[in-house]
Simulated scan of single mutants.
Amino acid sequence: MSDRDARTPRVFIVRHGETDWAKSGRYTGTTDIELTKVGAAQVSSTAAMIVGAGKPLDPSSLAHIFVSPRKRARKTFELLLPQSSFGAAGWEERVTYTEHIAEWDYGDYEGLKFAEIIQLRQGKGLDREREWNIWRDGCEGGESMKQVSDRLDKLISQIREIQRPHMNGGEAGNVLLVAHGLVLRCFAKRWIRYSVDSPLPMMLAPGAVAVLSYKNGNIDEPALCLGLELRKAEPSDVI
């Protein structure tokens, strides 16, 4: 990793920890569900490994944080970055709870499993020529691909403006997103200007972290960050 790459702002995307519905394969969009004990432990484990001064996700490096307003995302944020992580007062101004990063609204399919959705749609005479694909077909009574893309694009525009002044290093310019599995995969596609239904298979486990950034320190070259330089923090690195 070049010095330029190390100074280029990053976007950390974090999926909330396990919930009972997610564990059982039920589509969970607008329903407000708490983390399981395992889910809370997943996030706490992630925080212990990567969050802190001199670690990949240093609270002092964050220019802004966007969190889904659902309980499972809020709790994940609290476990990932306790208030004590921020030190100085006024950190609340850097946090926005926004529906822009809420999970896909599954509408009539909320709480159902994949096989149940397929059965429901077939009973209505749908999908006779091809199997239902949420990326392409959206959800009855819920959101379409375009609606999800539009709200994510608005958020991406906000993030670009936040990070634009920091492309050559300087003060903290990183951004953190805490949200949900499907919408974060959509976000990653839109970040690199792919359509939400592009065939780009991705996985993001409960409590997991992924990183987005820019190539060549250029705001017009958004990229997936496939790896970070992992090195021991020097005294000069710790603020």
Rank of each mutant, 00 (worst) to 15 (best):
G39Q: 09
V178M: 08
R74I: 10
A172W: 06
V43G: 08
R128D: 13
L80D: 08
A22W: 00
G217F: 11
R74Q: 12
L35A: 00
S236T: 11
Q83L: 11
T46R: 05
K232E: 15
T36Q: 01
S236H: 12
A102M: 13
R121M: 07
H166M: 03
P235I: 04
E99A: 15
R70H: 15
R70W: 13
K189V: 01
R74L: 06
G52W: 08
S68V: 09
S198H: 12
A115P: 07
L120P: 08
R130K: 15
L155T: 09
E161N: 10
L155P: 08
F12H: 05
K71N: 03
A89C: 13
D137E: 08
G141R: 10
Q119K: 13
C139Q: 06
K124P: 07
A73F: 07
H64P: 01
G54S: 03
Q147E: 15
I118T: 11
Y214H: 14
V209P: 03
L177S: 10
Y97F: 15
V43D: 09
A48R: 14
G227P: 05
A208K: 09
H100R: 15
L120C: 09
V51K: 00
C225W: 11
R94H: 10
L212S: 01
G170M: 04
A73E: 02
L35H: 00
F66A: 07
I50A: 01
Q42A: 11
F66P: 02
K23G: 09
G227R: 14
A172R: 08
V178N: 07
E18C: 04
T30K: 14
M145K: 14
V95A: 05
L212M: 10
S144R: 02
T30D: 14
R193V: 07
L200S: 08
R15P: 01
G217N: 04
V51Y: 00
R193L: 06
K232I: 11
I219P: 03
